[in-house]
Amino acid sequence: MCDHCGCEDHEHHHEQEQEEIKRIPVVQRILSANNQAALENRQHLKAHGITAVNIMSSPGAGKTTLLLATIAALGARVRLGVIEGDTASQVDAEIIAETGTPVVQINTGGGCHLDAPMVHNALHALPLDALDVIFIENVGNLICPVSFDLGQDLKVGLLSVPEGHDKPYKYPAIFEAVDLVVVTKSDLMPYLDFDLEKFKELVQGLNPHAPVLTLSAKTGEGMAEWLAWVEAQLG
């Protein structure tokens, strides 16, 4: 039997097929349109001397809380801006705006990630000449955001202690892709079975280039290392 299509009458069938069907090699990466838009964002940000950081995590891992603590600590000497991605609501942008930090809310309308054209539009609404760093808070989701380049310089993955140390097994793509891993809510460590050493070993096994920081934006524990990392990324 023919292993190409399962037909019994191989010669006749494929003679006919060759006359009618033509195979065209393509080998083109899907999402190339997004990647082109990301490239333009990257050039645009570079021209303004801005470092863009794409922050990704599950919903509720503490992205906004970490940003608020970062603004409180660095806002006086580093000019920060924020792009907030959520499927709906202005809640996070309003909290950030109260600090006086330039912020744009993107609502994806149910979409599970930000994409480069959305960020392009958001950049138009920020005072780019007056910023050093833009934090892009992605939609809370450990899966989809990884696939969409936004034009950021750096990707940071957050994992909160309650989520468990086994997450790299289940969501390897994010831990493989990021430049820094931040374990948040470290103040909960005594109450939960989060095995930090095991987690670090998994992340390092997958991505030895990404340091793993541990912090609590609530108590301030470990914040100094995070702030030093942010400041070290400035151009």
Partner: peptide, 22 residues
């Protein structure tokens, strides 16, 4: 026995080819 490794396959995402009726 080392844990993990460099990902050398599994991140592919592309259109390989198409067939058209001539």
């Amino acid at each position: 026995g080392a844990l993990g490794g460099e990902v050398i396959a599994g991140k592919e995402f592309y259109v390989e080819s198409i067939e058209v009726a001539s």
